[in-house]
Design a protein around this nucleic acid. Structure first.
Lengths: 341, 341
DNA sequence: AAGAATTTGATTTACGTACATCAAAAATGA
DNA sequence: TCATTTTTGATGTACGTAAATCAAATTCTT
């Protein structure tokens, strides 16, 4: 049987009340006594029964999710997953509040984070905009002892406890190798469609993509990045334009959102020529395009996994427990038309 | 606040004791009363607090894992993951016992399953050997009300509650498309190395592989399957032999274990020619081979996820709760050298 | 309608932890 | 050494559920 607080008390030769004072860092314990209790805890391998503790405390975990107010499929999906988590709240003892902040607005995000310092939630998850003021605001929360995890997009050099998202450099590298291999040694141009180079994920994907292209596929040259601002119409226009102007384009890498416009442009031109196309994020549109052959592969991060992982990690941090690293690694999904979920 | 048993009692106009009788299916309740209570439960949306219930019951979940005594990297990894789950047992309130049965021996597996009928564990997870007697034994357990999940390999037509493993037909199809695309329209022969065609996963992978090859890559023809019995030396010999005899081989698909021998054979021959190679299961050997270019892609199922998912599902079934389907879907991992974990 | 059988209510204890209160003991200061 | 402060012990209640007991009420039989 698993040891209880009574076992600690017996092992340390103190009373239950003293054990309680040590366990919950209440005042009024001499250092010698505290150490006696702590070593007893270590010796008998006591682990607090979190379920019983939460029951006694009537504890719920007040968490805050900060998401950007972006109007693209991926963010909609992420929001849906957060809502699903809210729906599970009573069972999971969480109490999740969502804050929307303008996208790409570091000041607004930092302000929102600072608001939380006085509110003192049990944990904060945010889709980070990679800027110094955001980093500093996150570090302040961490200093205050509030667990913080970044979701989808990480924050350079911050003290956040965890990042629930994919390795975007690896994603870009993977895209490059797939595209290169699919093109089988042919020479030509590769178009890259991004949302904005101000977003860290996009920059990183491009960085990884360019690196592998340069190292391994010298026959392929990357054209100047097209920034579609994750907007379908803009993407459609820019991609159509590029395809008409440049005959040498034999591959396309879409590393952001706004794939609807890309797909439309590709379909209009695909009568003329075959392109190898890799896109990010599995949505209804990209799924259809993958199935009909417009897109050859989709790289995806599972928003549901990211949200659930963020919550698990925040809970563990709030309880001072460790996490199963392998379980919390967010994997890069590669979908061909055969392994779609 | 979340409703409790007291709220049910008040809503249904009965006593706590009666609510308890209904909730825990104890005898001595008239049907009209039972229905009154049940509709009250539905109306106020009561969900049993599993943590509190387990605390009261002092419950642990006695689970049994049945794994084949196979001596290959994948099964070693699976065993390690089960042991890791055992190490977490006190915290997760599980009590996991492992039974080893001879591999590819349906009778032994069925016998082991039947033993469990009297033991009545809270759940059983097994790596299924796909045979009628196993199916019948599983169905008997299910009839007895014991939750059963298959892991890694599924069981045709059985009543098992859940399968924690990948879709192997999809895996084979994915391998075929990757290989076909990597070969970029070239014509030639493709060698397939399997463990044994008696195992369902291997048969299914081959089936999916062959289907896509026939549909989409008519220039590639699949040679008769090499059965290496998941044995490195045997695989080495057979593959070396095939590569020497057939100059037309330009691609290899290894859908089972025993990749060490394959890799050795490939390295010996690779000086002469470039092959596209796809293999299953990420191990130290295949990882190294992927990094040095001997293998082009690895398809993988994460044994840790499978074990943890199996346990979550068994718990949920034992508690009569539902599972988050998307969370329990075991995904096919595709690894190129750039996205290795 | 009486007696038996069944159904329902009321109440208690327990699980492991948190938290509060009050009394007792020990350490500290002058 | 005495008064004061600090530390420790003892005890009780609570969280939401399970499980048991015994008494009371209701239904069923004949």
């Amino acid at each position: 049987m698993r040891p209880t607080v009574h076992d600690i008390a017996a092992a340390a030769g103190v009373s239950l009340a003293t054990v309680d004072r040590v366990l919950n860092q209440r005042p009024g314990v001499r250092n010698v006594t505290r150490e006696k209790v702590e070593s007893a805890i270590r010796e008998i391998g006591y682990v607090r029964d979190v379920a019983a503790a939460n029951l006694a405390k009537g504890r719920t975990y007040p968490f805050v999710f900060i998401v950007p107010a972006s109007d693209n499929s991926f963010m909609h999906g992420l929001n849906a997953e957060v809502r699903a988590a809210v729906a599970r709240s009573p069972v999971e003892r969480t109490d999740i509040r969502t804050i929307e902040v303008p996208a790409f607005d570091p000041a607004a995000l930092a302000a929102a984070l600072d608001t939380l310092r006085s509110e003192r939630p049990a944990g904060v998850a945010l889709v980070a905009t990679d800027a110094p003021e955001v980093r500093d605001a996150v570090d302040r929360l961490v200093q205050d002892g509030i667990p913080v995890v970044t979701v989808v997009s990480d924050l350079t050099g911050s003290q956040r406890h965890h990042y629930a998202g994919v390795d975007n450099i690896a994603a870009g590298r993977t895209a490059a190798r797939l595209l290169g291999r699919f093109l089988g040694g042919a020479s030509g141009d590769v178009a890259v469609l991004a949302g904005s180079m101000l977003v860290r994920d996009h920059r990183e994907r491009l960085e990884g993509f360019a690196a592998v292209m340069a190292e391994e596929f010298p026959g392929l040259s990357i054209l100047p990045v097209i920034e579609g601002r994750d907007d379908p119409d803009m993407a459609h226009m820019l991609v159509s334009d590029a395809l008409s102007k440049r005959d040498g384009i034999i591959g396309v890498y879409s590393l952001g959102a706004g794939n609807r416009g890309l797909i439309r442009a590709l379909k209009e031109k695909s009568v003329d020529r075959a392109l190898a196309v890799i896109a990010h994020e599995l949505t209804d549109h990209t799924r259809t395009a993958l199935l009909d052959g417009t897109i050859d592969a989709i790289l995806n991060q599972d928003a549901g996994h990211e949200v659930r992982s963020a919550i698990r990690v925040l809970k563990a941090k709030a309880d001072g427990l460790s996490v199963i690293d392998a379980q919390e690694r967010i994997r890069l999904d590669i979908f061909l038309k055969d392994n779609l979920p």
